[in-house]
Simulated assay, not measured.
Amino acid sequence: MTRFTPQELEAARDRVIPDVAAGGLSVLFCGINPGLMSAATGHHFARPGNRFWPVLELSGFTPRLLKPAEQEELLSYGLGITNVVARATARADELSREEFREGGRLLTERVERLRPRWLAVVGITAYRTAFGERGAVVGPQERTIGETRVWALPNPSGLNARWTPTAMAEEYARLRVAAGVPDRRAEAEA
Rank of each mutant, 00 (worst) to 15 (best):
Met1Asp: 12
Met1Ala: 15
Thr2His: 13
Arg3Trp: 08
Phe4Cys: 08
Thr5Val: 09
Gln7Arg: 14
Glu8Gly: 08
Leu9Thr: 04
Ala11Ser: 12
Arg15Gly: 07
Asp19His: 03
Asp19Ala: 08
Val20Gln: 08
Ala21Asn: 07
Ala22Cys: 04
Gly23Tyr: 05
Leu25Phe: 02
Phe29Asn: 02
Ile32Tyr: 01
Ser38Trp: 07
Ala39Asn: 03
Thr41Lys: 04
Gly42Ile: 13
Phe45Gln: 13
Pro48His: 09
Asn50Gly: 09
Trp53Ala: 13
Glu57His: 15
Phe61Leu: 11
Arg64Cys: 10
Leu66Cys: 12
Gln71Thr: 07
Gln71Asp: 12
Glu72Thr: 12
Leu74His: 13
Ser76Met: 09
Ser76Arg: 15
Tyr77Arg: 12
Gly78Cys: 04
Ala90Phe: 15
Arg91Gln: 14
Glu94Thr: 04
Leu95Tyr: 07
Ser96Met: 08
Phe100Ser: 04
Phe100Asn: 05
Arg101Gln: 14
Arg101Pro: 07
Gly103Cys: 11
Leu106Ile: 00
Thr108Tyr: 06
Val111Ile: 13
Glu112Lys: 12
Arg113Val: 01
Arg113Tyr: 01
Pro116Gly: 06
Arg117Ile: 01
Val121Asn: 05
Val122Ala: 14
Gly123Asp: 03
Thr125Lys: 12
Ala126Ile: 09
Tyr127Thr: 03
Arg134Glu: 13
Val137Cys: 06
Ile145Trp: 11
Ile145Ala: 08
Gly146Arg: 06
Pro156Gln: 08
Gly158Ser: 00
Gly158Arg: 00
Thr166Ser: 14
Glu171Ser: 10
Tyr172Trp: 06
Ala173Pro: 03
Val181Gln: 03
Arg185Pro: 07
Glu187Ser: 06
Glu187Met: 11
Ala190Tyr: 00
